[in-house]
Design a protein around this nucleic acid. Structure first.
Lengths: 221, 221
DNA sequence: GCGCAAACATCTGTATACACTTGTATCGCA
DNA sequence: TGCGATACAAGTGTATACAGATGTTTGCGC
């Protein structure tokens, strides 16, 4: 058995199952049976149950009559999640323009330059979301950051459906251009411009994502 | 013992502890010991643990070395929560102006008229938050509604500190007036006005709340 | 072969057991 | 009296036990 307060806490199972969902290995609709997972991880049902409860509270899985199911989202729900994201991210861009430190700005520039320099779509993808994380940190509102992590996770579970569209070269260069504009506004402490540009950026991403998702699930709803 | 799928599920303990926190009976800083709670409710630690995990995920309690503690918020954190609320509620007001049905509007008017008619501060308080709930429903975005319930809960745990300020008669009449303006914009489907007025309304509430909270905790941080 | 009931396997929620850790109090000793 | 070491009480996380519920398969009459 593992010690009471050691590192092998139940949180590790939470992280593991969660990652499986986010990476698309455990797709929407997959049923998760506590006893099966506990056998797979060589632990008892108790810590697995705890992990599933956390995931349920995160909105990533839901309880079924028999087990837990990875939540399936309709295009409408995806749209709603995007709407929430736009509102919060715009507020964060605005806040970043007002509250950013020089260090925040340096970090943003650093990630942005790395993004502009790479050509690998996968790395670009990672750097893009990294840039958003850094921007949120620059907004200095952990409460909103936490909410956005939640929303990001809910969307990420559907990335496999939308990746084909969002990874197109012209979209990637468009993203870099938009980030550039936001970065400029933040560095000039122009809160209104930062907000407006973020709304435009996220709205465009939303439309792209939604279109791809609707196309890939045509007839399923 | 209670049945496997009956009504006496662990969710009831979650609701009960949660309510205690929201109503201020279990104030910030209070330590919650699973074994103590389980004895109090005449159940084992298991369902209590489950409830506490849910509450932790809600941001209402946090794990300490020994038990769980009702989260203590600094004025800065309260401000951050309000900032998130403003962003989301403004989006919802905008959405309501666009997507409201006639039934949504009728409900809003009904609650609003009841609010304007009463003089009891406690009832007014209840009706005010009821009005916001109805408005969110009119926005037709359950994802945002869910996030806002979360934020509301986090703030409500501090209502006992801020109630003295927010319950002043002139504030209450001001709230009714502001609601009236938002309602007007929503009924006219003027999304921009609905958004702007909601931002103004919530910003004012935030300042009031924050001032009262800062005053009541002077020197504590 | 088909429909239905009974047996079965499996999953659920909760209770209890247990090894381990930690904070506190007790007690001997200078 | 003051101060450690030690013992103890209480809490933590996980494993296991168990009763009740729920699908699923089996087997029987038709």
């Amino acid at each position: 058995m593992v010690t009471a307060h050691g590192e092998g806490r139940s949180g590790s199972h939470y992280a593991r199952i969660r990652q499986g969902i986010l990476e698309g290995r455990t797709g929407p609709g997959t049923v998760l049976i506590p006893s099966a997972l506990s056998a797979q991880y060589n632990v008892s049902r108790t810590p697995v149950r705890e992990a599933l409860i956390r995931l349920e509270q995160d909105g990533l899985v839901e309880q079924a009559t028999r087990g837990y199911v990875v939540r399936t989202r309709t295009p409408e729900e995806i749209l709603q999640i995007c709407e929430a994201r736009i509102a919060l991210e715009a507020t964060m861009a605005q806040a970043a323009a007002v509250r950013r430190t020089e260090l925040d700005l340096a970090r943003l520039v650093h990630v942005h330059e790395a993004t502009a320099a790479t050509t690998d779509p996968v790395e670009l993808r990672t750097l893009n979301s990294e840039w958003h994380v850094v921007l949120r940190d620059a907004g200095h509102n952990p409460t909103i950051s936490e909410l956005m992590e939640r929303l990001d996770a809910q969307l990420k579970a559907y990335d496999s459906y939308t990746a084909p569209a969002t990874d197109l070269p012209d979209n990637l260069s468009q993203i870099v251009a938009e980030h550039d504009g936001i970065l400029d506004a933040v560095s000039r402490r122009d809160a209104a411009a930062a907000r407006d540009r973020m709304v435009a950026h996220q709205s465009r991403t939303r439309d792209l994502r939604l279109g791809a998702f609707a196309r890939s699930t045509r007839g399923a709803f």
